[in-house]
Amino acid sequence: MGFKPSLLALAVGALSTLNVACATTGDQARDIAQNSIIVDGHIDVPYRVHNQWVDVTQATSDGDFDYPRARKGGLNAPFMSIYVPASLDNSDQSTQLAHQLIDSVEAIVQRAPDKFALAGNAAEVREQFEKGVISLPMGMENGSPIQGKLDNLQIFFDRGIRYITLAHSQSNHISDSSYDLRRKWKGLSPFGKELVREMNNIGMLIDISHVSDDAFYQVVELTKTPVIASHSSLRHFTPGFERNMNDDMLKKLGQNGGIVMINFGSGFVTKEARQWRDGLSKFTNAQIKEYGADSEQVSNAEQTYQQQHPYPYSTLSEVLDHIDYVVNLIGIEHVGIGSDYDGVGDTLPEGLKDVSAFPNLVAGLLERGYSEADIKKILGENFLRVWEQVEQYASQHSKS
């Protein structure tokens, strides 16, 4: 009589095969992460360090980014966000803070030149990747520090700023914000339109994260180069959330040759997390009405609400859904990574809690059938292609 394996033996065999497959995928994912240029379009290290200094050239006990974790994750070209709060708009303090935050990035590099280097163009990112050094390009989040002066644009470009997020949480002198119900300019201001043209001419990337829909459409109409959304996700998954991009905007972005860089924050990824945030706002407002704005109840409102309604963290799979959606709608060439690490607080998805987790993202892409070549596009090559196109336009249209 021939041998007939038991159901238990079959199950054990199947599980063993699955474990081997998972291990193989994990090993491949780590190899890809370590051997690819990973550009993250938006990490808020400078403002984190400004608020409470910590040496990110060493392991840190908090935050989402430091050198050991970046090395573990394979992250080698994180854009340092020079974030200026909207509360400083229309003041000299906004320009002062921007310079101070740039100083802090330069200090990181000076403290550990064997680990980090500034990067002012795509070629430097590629060269430093080959040397095993992490590039720290910079982008300005909120154009407020420009102060309506094109001279300031050139000054910040000379200091290493390579993209500008035109507005942040309020409309400023450049553009309306997606968060601001007062649509002062109905899109871009007259200066904002002039700024777009000059950013094209000097080789500054235009970032349409945070701007209103009208401002986005005006930018893509005016610009001569591809634009980026440095840390945005998709409105398809978060209906009514204007901070994310809708399908028509994505199609325009594709026609422009640009790239949307997916934000990992749970509130950008799922409607459940957005609804939680809306619920917290209603709860807080009710506490203010009942107890007063300076009350202990209001100070503890988020903690109280969280105890009653645990935060619905998104998952790695749901982040991958955003990537899939862009690929299916406008193509693999138009999606990248804009995690918002150190910028979205304790809202990061399971499996993507800090910069060491990029191999998890790669493993998820492999499991969904993406080739290594396509994964490399998503991780960094798509962004570098856009950056190189912006540089090429500027080299042909500079005033010098």
Score class of each variant (00 low, 15 high):
10 L>C: 12
18 L>I: 06
19 N>R: 04
26 G>V: 00
26 G>M: 00
28 Q>V: 03
30 R>L: 04
31 D>W: 08
35 N>L: 08
37 I>D: 04
39 V>Y: 00
40 D>E: 03
40 D>T: 04
40 D>S: 03
47 Y>C: 12
48 R>H: 07
50 H>P: 10
58 Q>W: 09
61 S>D: 13
62 D>E: 14
64 D>H: 14
77 A>I: 04
78 P>H: 03
81 S>Q: 09
82 I>P: 04
93 Q>I: 12
94 S>F: 09
95 T>E: 15
98 A>Q: 07
102 I>W: 02
108 I>E: 04
113 P>N: 05
121 N>V: 02
122 A>F: 03
124 E>M: 12
127 E>C: 01
130 E>S: 11
132 G>L: 10
136 L>S: 10
136 L>M: 11
137 P>F: 03
140 M>R: 01
144 S>I: 07
145 P>H: 02
146 I>L: 14
147 Q>S: 14
149 K>W: 08
149 K>Y: 12
151 D>P: 00
152 N>D: 11
156 F>W: 02
161 I>C: 01
165 T>W: 07
167 A>V: 06
170 Q>Y: 01
172 N>I: 03
174 I>H: 02
176 D>T: 01
177 S>M: 06
177 S>C: 05
178 S>A: 13
180 D>W: 06
183 R>T: 13
183 R>N: 13
186 K>E: 14
188 L>N: 02
189 S>K: 00
191 F>W: 04
192 G>Q: 02
194 E>T: 09
197 R>T: 15
206 I>G: 00
206 I>D: 03
212 S>I: 03
213 D>T: 06
217 Y>R: 04
218 Q>P: 09
226 P>I: 09
227 V>A: 11
232 S>G: 08
235 R>S: 14
236 H>S: 08
236 H>F: 14
238 T>C: 15
242 E>S: 12
243 R>F: 12
251 K>C: 13
252 K>G: 12
252 K>A: 15
253 L>S: 07
256 N>Y: 05
259 I>L: 14
263 N>M: 10
266 S>V: 08
273 A>H: 04
274 R>K: 08
274 R>I: 06
277 R>S: 15
278 D>N: 07
280 L>V: 11
282 K>I: 15
287 Q>I: 12
292 G>L: 10
295 S>V: 13
303 Q>F: 14
320 L>E: 03
321 D>L: 05
322 H>D: 13
323 I>W: 02
328 N>Y: 13
331 G>E: 09
333 E>F: 09
337 I>P: 01
343 G>S: 14
355 V>W: 05
355 V>A: 07
366 L>H: 00
368 R>T: 07
368 R>H: 04
368 R>Q: 09
372 E>G: 07
380 G>R: 00
381 E>H: 00
382 N>I: 02
386 V>E: 10
386 V>A: 14
390 V>F: 10
394 A>Q: 08
397 H>E: 07
400 S>A: 11
